[in-house]
């Protein structure tokens, strides 16, 4: 099963997979983690803008999910994104304490931008990525979930614990802010 196929898993299948993983079925747990790994990794990557930090955070988040999977109730996706978001907040908090660690704004690796065929396009995308960091937490979350991860409004609403109209409002404000930040460069 490749990652594109994994993305197509429906809610019912996901529910069954979670239930089996909760019953200590190790194969289901592995399948579940294969399914959520790219989601968590992408989310972390666009939040922290750094490949290594995203990898570490993803590992940490998956461990947290393993530890408390048996107690999970309600929306599974909402639950894992909440864990991810809280872990990222903790990550920034610890990093702020360390202070000496520099926040890199440099592009991390060409691996992630292999599709960028020319330098100009590549730089525009980098600029957009940096502009994302200047959005509010909620605007950034909506932008990542909807435009980069491809969730529908209803799914984003469920993950963020908001209603669809609130998501539409956040989406509008996020796009307007991004436009203001990068101007006509797009």
């Amino acid at each position: 099963m490749n990652y594109k196929e994994q993305k197509l898993i429906n809610e019912k299948d996901l529910g069954e997979l979670v239930a089996m993983a909760q019953n200590n079925d190790s194969k289901s747990l592995a399948r579940l983690f294969e399914y959520i790994y790219p989601k968590i990794y992408t989310f972390c990557f666009y939040k922290v803008n750094n490949e290594e930090d995203a990898k570490d955070l993803t590992g940490e988040i998956l461990l947290k999910i393993t530890k408390s999977l048996n107690r999970q109730k309600g929306s599974f996706l909402g639950w894992i994104y909440r864990i991810a978001n809280n872990s990222i907040i903790d990550f920034y908090r610890h990093r702020a304490r360390r202070e000496k660690v520099e926040v890199s704004h440099e592009p991390d690796s060409n691996v992630f931008y292999s599709k960028a065929t020319d330098v100009e396009d590549y730089l525009r995308k980098e600029e957009l990525k940096l502009a994302l960091k200047k959005l509010t937490e909620e605007q950034r979350m909506v932008t990542i979930l909807k435009f980069i991860q491809g969730y529908k409004n209803e799914e984003v609403a469920q993950i963020m614990g908001k209603n669809v109209n609130a998501i539409k409002g956040l989406q509008f404000r996020a796009l307007r802010s991004l436009r203001g930040l990068i101007g006509e460069n797009i």
Binding site: Y37, K55, F112, R124
Partner: peptide
């Protein structure tokens, strides 16, 4: 301009997960 921004955001590739990791 907003739709152009949205399209550009959609063109940002999802980072390729590292299978070994």
């Amino acid at each position: 301009p907003l739709l152009k921004t949205a399209l550009k955001l959609q063109s940002l590739s999802e980072p390729v997960p590292n299978q070994q990791h």
